[in-house]
């Protein structure tokens, strides 16, 4: 386990606790190394629903349904998955549903896989076009305050927010 992995474990546990304190009870994801602690914690937590998806757009619709029932959720995905969500975000924007997603970035700082660049570089443009506010995080100490701010923007103000966990934060080599 390298140093970067160690650091990410620290903030991911804190992040999970923050989401639970804010009554997030539906964790939806397409498995991704960048979110593995959050996914594992949600699977081990009898107080939440851990929902593995076949494609990320399912998570967008899931969270709208959660909101109709008065529950809160979060969508965990990799940057490549943001492209799979675009038309389903019509539901979020048109319905003014609260929407929180944490995006582990690929195709940016130090990326070695050329297939990741087209979608990775388009994330902010396409999410922005569908009305999702993007907050970038580059340093470990910024993660929890940024997600905390996003939680307020989403569940108090009713907006759609993506927190982008960049490769400068996650490290480009680990996955």
């Amino acid at each position: 386990m390298d140093e970067t992995t160690h650091k990410s474990i620290g903030w991911q546990d804190e992040l999970y606790d923050l989401l639970r304190r804010n009554r997030v009870t539906q964790f939806a994801y397409v498995p991704d190394a960048g979110h593995r602690i959050l996914i594992a914690r949600s699977l081990a937590d009898p107080g939440v629903h851990s929902v593995a998806l076949t494609t990320e757009e399912e998570g967008v619709a899931l969270l709208a349904g959660a909101d109709l029932g008065g529950a809160r959720g979060v969508l965990l995905m990799q940057s490549s998955g943001t492209g799979n969500c675009i038309n389903m975000l019509s539901l979020i924007k048109g319905g003014r549903f609260p929407f929180l997603t944490l995006v582990s970035m690929r195709g940016d700082f130090g990326e070695g896989n050329p297939w990741q660049f087209p979608m990775g570089q388009a994330v902010e443009a396409v999410l922005g076009a569908m009305g999702v506010i993007c907050l970038r995080v580059e340093r470990p100490e910024e993660v929890v305050p940024t997600v905390s701010a996003a939680v307020t923007m989403v569940f108090q103000s009713g907006h759609a927010v993506a927190v982008l966990l960049t490769q400068k934060l996650l490290g480009a080599k680990q996955f």
């Binding site: 969270l63 109709l68 029932g69 539901l91």
Partner: peptide, 25 residues
């Protein structure tokens, strides 16, 4: 009822999120 007119492909998953949120219904 929540009747959609777009976001095609989302109905079943909206139902899932709602069902998980409201086990009493």
């Amino acid at each position: 009822s929540y009747t959609m007119a777009g976001a095609m492909g989302g109905a079943c998953m909206i139902g899932l999120g709602l069902a998980l949120a409201r086990p009493d219904k």
